[in-house]
């Protein structure tokens, strides 16, 4: 019965990165210069207090790591509202299926190539973040994921550990997270 159910639903997986991402776009500000909270493009909370339009997230890739096959990702929550956590978990949903791209989660930083950091670093999590970063083998990359990790509430991830890539969003959608993960591996660019 499970098999029949699957056949009935058909293929749900996005054609991204070979084709266009089919997920609906997020609302983002048209201009950042009128932000009442003085946030920048990466720390914008998309609150709706300025003019908004449907758009993709802002992604910045500073460094890439030379990994062409599989990439192991350690997810480090340092103070999120748990929405970013859900978006990261949904990378395993059939619509995104990150394993087809050679991306895998690992429960330990010792086996990780990329650390995805979620949330505004809290006082108690800063030392944990530093320790996790030290445990990662070289070559390694840190992605500051979402507005909170990029200073929406003051503290930024890059104040604690070197950051290879940043992505905006509150939270960024799974397909945008795929872009930044492939971006740090040098397998995607805008």
């Amino acid at each position: 019965m499970w098999m029949l159910r699957g056949l009935k639903k058909g293929v749900l997986t996005t054609r991204f990165p070979k084709g266009e991402a089919d997920a609906p776009l997020t609302l983002r500000p048209v201009k950042m210069d009128k932000c009442p909270f003085a946030r920048d493009e990466f720390s914008c909370l998309a609150c709706g207090l300025c003019e908004m339009k449907e758009s993709t997230e802002k992604i910045e890739i500073k460094d890439t790591i030379p990994l062409k096959s599989s990439i192991h990702i350690f997810v480090m929550d340092v103070g999120s509202c748990a929405a970013c956590n859900r978006e990261v978990s949904l990378l395993k949903a059939p619509q995104y299926d990150l394993h087809r791209l050679g991306l895998f989660f690992t429960p330990t930083p010792k086996h990780a190539d990329v650390m995805l950091v979620l949330g505004a670093p809290t006082e108690k999590m800063v030392p944990v973040l530093k320790e996790a970063y030290e445990l990662m083998p070289e070559p390694k990359a840190v992605v500051a994921l979402g507005a909170c990790a990029n200073g929406a509430f003051g503290q930024k991830v890059e104040d604690t550990v070197p950051v290879s890539a940043r992505i905006s969003g509150c939270p960024p959608q799974p397909v945008e997270i795929l872009k930044v993960l492939l971006g740090v591996a040098g397998r995607w660019n805008e």
Partner: peptide, 10 residues
């Protein structure tokens, strides 16, 4: 915890 993968949150 707080960074254990099984919990999914800090």
């Amino acid at each position: 915890g707080p960074a254990a993968g099984g919990l999914g949150e800090a």
